[in-house]
Amino acid sequence: MRWTWFHRLASPPYLYGLAARLTPWFAWPAALLILGGLFAGLVLAPPDYQQGEGFRIIYVHVPSAWMSLMVYVTMGLAAAVGLIWRMKVAHAIAASCAPIGASFTVAALVTGSLWGKPMWGTWWVWDPRLTSELILLFLYLGFMGLRAGFDDTQRADRAGALLAIVGLVNVPIIHYSVIWWNSLHQAPSVLRFGKPTIPGAMLAPLLILLLGFTLFFAALLLVRVRAEILQRERTARWISETLSG
């Protein structure tokens, strides 16, 4: 009884219909939160006493970096579920995560570079945080490339899942890199144990954006997973029934 929800989610037609119904409930709040958060970050938040207006890059950099990691963890966990319980829809979820995560990793790297130039005086250094984030991009690209190399979806799922799971070790390395090693990059000021170390008027837009980006990821995932399911279940009867109905 307790596991019926899990079994129902594992059913492609059920997940397909559920994803279609849920999408607007994530997409519209995400749009409002992101637009509101960006406005608050650009206009309402006070300038930083050290970085002046330059600190406002935080409102695009931190949410992008958060996405790059959160999407990877989702991908790795979905891949593990797919591998352990031989669950097709979990592999579909993992495959749907990769292009989303890769694009936000690029955004995190580019916005970080645009922040680094005025504050550190350099676009790029081979620093532990920056290097491990670049490795994250290669993990996403490697996962997509590896999957694309197989004609057989099941073999692509298994090979991709192994890579995604092994790559999970990079996630704590990225997060703790600024604490474990000497880094140009500052230590966490929001996603840390204990209270955030930035004041409320600066923090509020950031929290709004973190929530907005997370809901945005959920909406994207719900759309992409439907495309994945359609491709994987192309011979199933329920698809022609759903499409004609």
């Binding site: 002046g52 207006e53 890059i57 936000f104 005025p118 759309v223």
Partner: peptide, 30 residues
């Protein structure tokens, strides 16, 4: 932007582009 325009606006531009492209890509794949 207090002299930081050359860094702030491209950063916001890239992030907005990634947000919009993700919508286009996801809808295109479906």
């Amino acid at each position: 932007m207090g002299g930081y325009a050359a860094f702030i606006w491209p950063a916001y531009g890239v992030t907005l582009a990634v947000l919009v492209l993700n919508i286009i890509w996801a809808r295109g794949s479906l």
